[in-house]
Design a protein around this nucleic acid. Structure first.
Lengths: 149, 149
DNA sequence: TTTAATGGTTTCATTACGCAACCAAAGGAG
DNA sequence: CTCCTTTGGTTGCGTAATGAAACCATTAAA
């Protein structure tokens, strides 16, 4: 049987994972944020097989998360770059990174820091904030399902 | 060949995906946030195969993200619940959900809202903030790798 | 004219996923 | 005590996804 996809689940988390939840996909997007543009660049940075990379990139292009730009004169050189939709995944990557910083490496032991040039300091820990700008407690949340019209 | 895991990559994103990046894993955690506790509960909510669910749950327990609590008298009823390490994934799920709200369903069309009871309003959009509490521009970020000692 | 670089595709082996069937321990019904 | 149900799995088996290596087509450089 085919791997079950999450298309039919009425949930934004499932839908997002359906688009970027495949093995390798978020790491490709990460490297795009870190400056990778060319097929060979993703390949060598990630150590991913070429067929898998080609498949993931074309999926990402199909889904509007990256675009394939012809940067040669005649179609031998391409750049893959994030669209606005793709750049908008930065909070997702930041949340994943901050969790790993804390729970895999431990505070202060992370292998890389992301520094805001303006202040010279790392990004603040990303937390879900309420209307008053304060972090919310899990117990103070209520899930409200929309009725389908 | 076996699926390549991301163990050896010195990157918090890769390490986090190594723990929760498997197909189904983040949806199991999502349902734990939404109140699921029992094996059969996860099974019916997700429509996941029992062997896969058993495998993912034991992985999550092994990694300290969930814990298996005996709630029967003699070991026939168990509850799976998030540890602090697991609850700390809430920002990751929130970021995924907010991206899907915007880019899959479109603003205002998401199938569910998460409301802060205190204010009666949805959570604020989660964005990486700089030291001054303002959202940072991607161009103002600098990646600083730590040298290994 | 040959060689190298880019960006793939193809082939094949191995693993992971999905379904259904089976199972073991405990509790309740009769 | 015996049968049946519930819970929480495990086992087999077929199919899809992944990974490594080989191959390929186009363009450009030597």
């Amino acid at each position: 049987m085919a791997r079950k996809r999450f298309n039919d689940m009425p949930c934004s988390i499932a839908q997002t994972l359906n688009l970027v939840g495949d093995w390798w996909t978020l790491l490709i997007i990460r490297d795009a944020f870190f400056g990778a543009r060319r097929f060979a660049e993703f390949e060598s940075r990630l150590g991913i097989a070429k067929n898998i990379l080609a498949n993931r990139l074309s999926q990402l292009v199909d889904n509007g998360i990256m675009q394939k730009v012809d940067i040669g004169q005649t179609g031998t050189h391409y750049a893959y770059e994030l669209t606005e939709k793709g750049r908008d995944l930065f909070p997702v990557l930041t949340a994943l990174r901050q969790w790993g910083d804390k729970w895999v490496y431990g505070e202060g032991c992370a292998p890389m820091d992301i520094i805001e040039r303006k202040s010279g300091r790392p990004l603040a820990r990303m937390l879900p904030l309420g209307a008053d700008g304060e972090p919310v407690a899990l117990g103070d949340l209520e899930i409200r399902l929309k009725e389908k019209s």
